[in-house]
Design a protein around this nucleic acid. Sequence first.
DNA 1: CCAAGGCCTGAATG
DNA 2: ACATTCAGGCCTT
Length: 292
Amino acid sequence: MMQDFNTVNVEATIQSGQVFLWQKQETKTDGFWYGVNGQDVLMVGNNGKIRSLKKDGSDFFRRNDDLERIIRTISKDATTKKAVRRYLGLRLMDQDPFQCMISFIASSNSNIQRIKNCLERLSKRFGQRVEFDKKEFFVFPTPKALADASVEEITECGAGYRSKFIRSASEMVVKGRIDFDRLRRMEYAQTREEIRAVPGIGNKVADCIMLFSLNKLEAFPLDRWMIRILRRYYPDLCIKTTTKKTTAMTTITDRQYELLHEGIVDHFGRYAGYAQQFLFKMERENFGRGWL
DNA sequence: CCAAGGCCTGAATG
DNA sequence: ACATTCAGGCCTT
């Protein structure tokens, strides 16, 4: 049977935990989405067609990826095959790196709704107001805008103890200590090392930033959910790391994270990040938690 | 290298 | 109502 690898499932993609500043607009006939991506505002129809304020020509849905090949590569077992079949059309997005970095620094020890609130308030306070489709939006703050903000002001946006991380990270970008264009061209391991030097960026956050905005498809964010999934469906992969037989032990050390990631790339291959996205989506749906 | 504790906050739970 | 728990981690002992 011939499968369609070109159609993007916009709703599933936007609601897959990769992005936070998106809103659905319902009409009588169909729906579409508006989203902030860095200094740009995007409008996406259910057909996946994008209109944007800046028309920067970026490949937001990564349409240049060879999905047929990628899916063939990651479909190494029954679990992945099932997840891929169920969510065919789910994509990784290629986000603005600065927004992505701040978003995931803000995400630690938090939840979707609160991350959204925080990022919306940051944008409204420090981002530029723009009009698009006769509607008002606040684009994401520039690195300079957040670097110039006080920690207290960032806290007022609901970032909590992460506020100082957000400001330091922004300063590092302004100073060129973090250079996204350069990181984008570098290898996974070295990129990881550099961004992990940013306060507030640990293993999981680093993998999110790399996978969602720096074109590192072997990045495989291991959060509590993914670790749970791996323990259930891929116990063999976990043997190296989890001799502990605990109940809900879903935190791992740096060393364990590294070993587990190696095992994952061995198993799924160089596009492991796509596998993560499909598995994550499936498990979240199975679990049936309110999501937005 | 590993374990434990603290951390902002607010929605969900009892 | 009110208190407590918990959430898609990270940093410091």
